[in-house]
Amino acid sequence: MTTAKSLFDSLVGQLQGYRPEEARAIIYLLFEHFLRFRRTDVIVNKPLPAQQPDWAELVRRLNEHEPVQHLIGTTEFCGLEFQVSPAVLIPRPETEELIRLIVRDYAEAPSPLNIIDLGTGSGCIAVTLARFLPQATVTAWDLSEEALDIARQNAEQLQAEILFEKRDILKADEESPSAGPSRFDCVVSNPPYVTHSEAAEMEPNVLRYEPHLALFVEDTDPLLFYKAVADFGRAHLTEGGACYVEINERFGDETRRVFEERAYRTVQVYKDIHGKDRFVKATI
């Protein structure tokens, strides 16, 4: 009889183009999702259930560099399980650091606390902030209806009350007024910031399977979205309110200047766990 350990070793051996530790981590994720097996179940060589997924098909998709998160349909972010699809970016660990920064700053803030997430994607930022800051009223915008569908599902599943709107931050001044609040204490955004010239350096699982609309910005104007976020903040932040943005590590100083040129009172660049410029906080 095939057991967990023998199947695990076989599947790891069939993966191509992955580092050994990465291949093992991926198969562990598949075991947990499809079999409800944990690592200890593999170690003790637990017998396998009769019903199993099509392992050959899963291996084929992985060997074509499809993200494992798409195979299982979910990913973990800040201890919460989010649905993902090719319509949204898969939440990154670095973005969890952005959440921690905001929660630290607003944990003791009184109600009402109005937050808006510009370019919400999967909703991971908006939903997590709504969960971690229960005094907050959270609004989330995105241009993609497909992304908003995923975000709404995540909000419902994780019991977070969010006002979602299909809106384009680049045309905020041209559209009709929002249905939500007009003033915010916190504006947060993880906008497209990868330039097309950087595409050659990216992993194929990102290039092939994640939405380019949410990833890329033209090399001719790499700070396009930060200018829009900064302008939105100037128009809609309350006194003492702040913008929090995730940034391209190559443009830390340049992004800081975007906010300084718009007369934000204090602008700080924060590094991520890898020591790279990754976030900007700009206070009105």
Score class of each variant (00 low, 15 high):
230 A>F: 06
229 V>W: 03
227 K>T: 07
250 R>K: 15
235 A>K: 11
235 A>P: 10
225 F>P: 14
251 F>M: 07
227 K>N: 10
227 K>Y: 14
236 H>T: 13
247 I>Q: 03
245 V>R: 02
239 E>P: 06
234 R>I: 07
232 F>Q: 05
225 F>I: 09
229 V>T: 13
237 L>Q: 05
234 R>Y: 06
247 I>L: 02
234 R>D: 08
240 G>F: 07
223 L>Y: 01
249 E>I: 08
229 V>C: 05
237 L>S: 09
241 G>N: 04
245 V>G: 01
233 G>Q: 07
231 D>M: 15
250 R>H: 14
231 D>P: 12
226 Y>H: 10
234 R>W: 09
241 G>S: 08
232 F>V: 07
227 K>C: 08
225 F>Q: 07
225 F>L: 11
224 L>K: 14
223 L>I: 03
227 K>I: 07
225 F>T: 08
246 E>P: 04
242 A>P: 08
250 R>F: 14
243 C>V: 11
232 F>E: 09
233 G>F: 01
224 L>A: 13
245 V>E: 00
236 H>I: 03
231 D>R: 15
240 G>Q: 15
235 A>G: 08
241 G>A: 06
223 L>H: 05
252 G>E: 04
235 A>T: 15
240 G>T: 11
249 E>A: 14
247 I>H: 02
234 R>E: 08
244 Y>R: 06
231 D>S: 15
237 L>F: 03
248 N>P: 12
227 K>M: 06
239 E>F: 13
223 L>M: 13
224 L>C: 14
229 V>L: 10
249 E>F: 02
231 D>T: 14
243 C>R: 01
237 L>M: 06
252 G>H: 00
228 A>H: 08
243 C>S: 05
239 E>A: 15
245 V>Q: 03
239 E>V: 15
248 N>Q: 07
252 G>K: 05
236 H>V: 00
224 L>H: 15
238 T>N: 15
228 A>P: 08
230 A>W: 07
236 H>A: 09
223 L>Q: 00
234 R>N: 09
236 H>G: 02
240 G>D: 15
251 F>R: 12
245 V>K: 01
239 E>G: 13
232 F>I: 10
223 L>E: 03
231 D>H: 14
249 E>S: 10
244 Y>A: 01
231 D>Y: 14
232 F>T: 04
252 G>N: 00
241 G>F: 02
239 E>Q: 14
247 I>E: 04
248 N>S: 12
224 L>Q: 13
229 V>Y: 02
237 L>W: 06
226 Y>N: 03
247 I>D: 00
250 R>E: 06
247 I>P: 01
233 G>W: 02
234 R>C: 13
244 Y>C: 05
245 V>A: 05
250 R>I: 10
240 G>M: 10
246 E>H: 08
247 I>S: 00
245 V>Y: 00
230 A>Q: 11
244 Y>M: 06
239 E>R: 12
237 L>H: 05
226 Y>I: 02
246 E>L: 09
235 A>I: 12
224 L>R: 15
227 K>Q: 11
230 A>C: 13
238 T>H: 13
239 E>K: 15
241 G>H: 07
